[in-house]
Simulated scan of single mutants.
Amino acid sequence: MLVTGAAGLLGRAVLDLLSARDVAATALVLSDPGDLPADRVVVGDAGDPEVVRKGLDGVDAIVHLAAIPAPNLATPVEVFGGNTRATFVALTEAAQAGITRAVIASSMSVLGLAWAQQPLRPAYLPIDEELPLQVTDPYALSKQTDEAIGTMVWRRYGMTVTAIRFPFLGGPERLAHRVELHTSTPEGGAAELWTYLHTDDAAAACLLGVTNAPPGSHVVFVAAPETLAPYETEALLDEFHPGVPRRRRFPGRMVPMILEAGERVLGFKAERLWPVEVLPRG
C-alpha cells in the first residue's frame, strides 16, 4: 500500500497500523525523517507524476494524505494548487496503474466554517454529507476539489475512491490540550462543532476505506460520538449556533454530526474515546 504524506500526524499512524498488521507499505514523503516504519520510502512531491509512479510500483492500494493542511501555512496558490495537483496526480496515476481502491483525506474544513473570515453557521444540525458548503478559503476549496477529483476518477477509471472528512485529530497530548481550550474558550471550537477523532481511529478508518468500501465514489464524515468540550451539546449550540434548525436532540455531549455514512460505507466506529467530565455552562 502506498501512503502519501506518510511523515505527517495521520500518515505515521497509518504506517504504524499497517506495520502492526504485517501489511507492506511504501511511504511517499517530501523528505525522509529516517524513522518511518515502511518497507520502502520514496522521496519527492506527490504532485510529481514520476515520483508517484515510483511510489506506486508493486502496491495494490493508495492512501493519499499529502497536503498543506491549513490555508495559513502557504500562499493561497500553493495551498489550493499544490493540494489539488497532488490529489489529481496521485489518483489518476494510481488508476492508470491498475489500482482499484483509494482513500483520500478530506476535512471538516470543506464545510467552509473553520477558516471563514466572518463566523458562519451550518444550514442545519446535525450536519451530514449533504450539508451545503460555504467555502471562502483556498484550503476548503482544495478539499471540495479533491472530493470532485475522486468522483471523476471513479467515473473515468472505475477506481473506488473514498474521501474521509476528518475532524480535529490527535493522540493523548493533543486531545488533552484541546479539552483545555474548549473548557476556557469553547467559542474556538464552534466552527468544527467541538468534534474530534483519535489519530489511531483515523488510521483505522483509512484502512477500512481501502478494504471495506463498496465500489463507487464516497464522501463520509468520521468522528468520535461525543464532543471534546466539557459542556452539554445543547447548551453549546444554544450559545454559539442560535437559530440553526435542529433535526434531533443532542443529549449529553452527543456530537452534532450524522455518523451513519461512515458506519455504512466503512464499517467504522470510533473506539478510542477521550474521557471528559461534564461541567455546567454558565
Rank of each mutant, 00 (worst) to 15 (best):
M1I: 04
G5N: 07
A6H: 03
L10M: 08
L10D: 10
R12A: 07
A13W: 01
L17F: 05
L17R: 14
L18D: 05
D22T: 07
A24K: 13
A24G: 06
V29I: 00
V29S: 07
L30H: 06
L30R: 14
S31D: 13
S31Q: 11
D35S: 13
L36W: 03
R40A: 03
G44H: 03
G44A: 02
D45T: 02
G47H: 00
D48H: 05
E50L: 05
V51C: 05
K54V: 03
K54N: 07
G55I: 00
G55F: 01
G55H: 05
L56R: 02
D57N: 00
A61G: 14
A61V: 06
V63I: 15
V63P: 05
V63E: 12
H64Y: 06
L65E: 01
A67F: 10
I68V: 15
P71V: 11
T75F: 09
V79G: 11
G81A: 14
N83R: 13
N83Q: 11
A86N: 12
A90F: 01
A95K: 04
T100M: 00
M108E: 14
S109C: 12
V110F: 10
A116L: 07
A116F: 00
Q118Y: 10
P122L: 12
A123F: 13
Y124V: 10
Y124S: 11
E130F: 10
E130R: 11
L131D: 08
V135L: 13
L141Q: 15
T145Y: 14
I149R: 03
I149G: 02
M152E: 09
R155Q: 14
V161N: 05
R165V: 14
G170W: 08
L175Y: 03
A176C: 01
V179D: 04
P186L: 11
A190C: 09
L193Q: 12
Y196E: 06
T199Q: 01
D201N: 03
A203G: 01
C206P: 08
L208T: 01
V210Y: 00
V210F: 06
T211I: 06
N212W: 02
N212E: 14
P215G: 05
V219L: 11
F221C: 08
V222E: 13
V222P: 02
A224Q: 03
P225M: 13
E232V: 08
T233M: 12
A235E: 15
A235G: 04
L237A: 07
E239C: 12
H241M: 13
V244P: 02
P245N: 10
P245G: 09
P245E: 00
R247V: 02
R247F: 00
R248W: 03
P251C: 11
V255P: 07
P256V: 12
M257Y: 08
A261C: 04
G262R: 02
G262V: 03
E263I: 02
F268Y: 15
F268E: 12
K269F: 00
A270M: 06
E271I: 03
R272D: 03
V278W: 06
L279P: 04
P280K: 09
G282F: 10
